[in-house]
């Protein structure tokens, strides 16, 4: 009888756990893929950090660059995992053939997106923790310990803005049944290009620099680097958090709105059917 008395909000939260649990179970069952993908990410991250040693610089500058690149690759590992977990949620269900059953269940789309996003955060954090361990074991990283908590705060707030963009990207597989998932990779690659993940945004052409202000990753990376490579001042942290909050406040409702429109379009044109 607990269900009968539960509020709709609590029911939604409980139902959203269905997606977290399901995706965790799927990750466990596809453990071979997960390990392969993890090895790929670790190898890629290490390859990027090794660039610091190949650059002719003073030893102190090399240590700085190692940390600079490690922050970039770790942050991007988390953000990309989060983004992909949300953006690929529809495509995954299409591939398994379950999308119609999820879409005809009595849960709100907010519940669906909340569940996908919660799993994205858990999944991204778990993967990034393993990548961090690999980097710490391989390289001498010496971040500013005082910057740890502000860094976690920036990641938490930054996650919200990435969730918003992930939800917007997740509409693509709804609209384009065959190539929608691949289109989300284009968005991810563009974010990687413009956000200064492995280089300062200042090296980019003027127009791209201007566009980089729209990417939450720009502020996340600037904020984290200031905290871990420099001095985590209050103004620096607040300077990173404010644009992230603004982007989150704009992109999450916009993503949900776009999702609702895309779902209506998909139901009008018969695009919820299984493909693949």
């Amino acid at each position: 009888m607990a269900v009968a008395n539960a509020s709709p909000v609590w029911r939604s939260v409980k139902a959203s756990y269905a997606l977290v649990e399901r995706n965790v179970n799927l990750s466990k069952r596809y453990w071979g893929w997960e390990i392969a993908f993890l090895v790929y990410t670790i190898a890629q991250s290490m390859a990027i950090v090794y660039i610091a040693y190949a650059t002719p610089m003073k030893p102190s500058a090399v240590a700085h660059m190692v940390l600079y690149l490690a922050v970039g690759t770790l942050t991007w590992s988390y953000m990309a995992s989060l983004f992909q977990a949300i953006a690929e949620s529809v495509q995954w269900e299409r591939w398994e053939g379950t999308i119609e059953y999820t879409m005809m269940s009595p849960i709100s789309r907010l519940t669906y997106l909340l569940g996908s996003s919660l799993f994205g955060v858990v999944y991204g954090l778990a993967r990034s923790a393993v990548v961090l361990l690999a980097l710490v074991a391989t390289f001498h990283l010496s971040p500013n310990p005082a910057g740890l908590w502000p860094t976690l705060l920036i990641i938490a707030v930054g996650s919200l803005s990435f969730i918003g963009i992930g939800i917007m990207a997740a509409t693509l597989p709804l609209l384009f049944t065959e190539k929608g998932a691949q289109m989300t990779y284009v968005i991810e690659a563009l974010l990687l290009l413009i956000s200064g993940v492995y280089y300062p945004v200042s090296v980019l052409p003027g127009l791209v620099q201007a566009v980089s202000h729209l990417s939450p990753a720009t502020y996340i990376l600037n904020g984290i680097r200031t905290c871990l490579l420099g001095t985590p001042t209050q103004s620096a942290v607040v300077g990173a958090l404010i644009p992230l909050i603004i982007i989150g406040v704009v992109t999450i409702p916009l993503g949900i709105l776009l999702w609702a429109q895309a779902e209506t379009f998909a139901k009008r044109t018969g695009r919820l059917k299984r493909t693949g």
């Binding site: 139902a15 649990e21 398994e96 379950t98 059953y101 269940s105 299984r274």
Partner: peptide, 30 residues
């Protein structure tokens, strides 16, 4: 309502229990 179609449409790597618990949660079945 619920539906059974020509294809079982289940998560193939998950067990029947895991598939059905997922459905139960979506439909608020304890």
């Amino acid at each position: 309502l619920n539906r059974v179609s020509v294809e079982a449409s289940l998560f193939k790597k998950l067990s029947p229990m895991e598939n059905l618990i997922y459905a139960a949660r979506l439909y608020s079945v304890p």
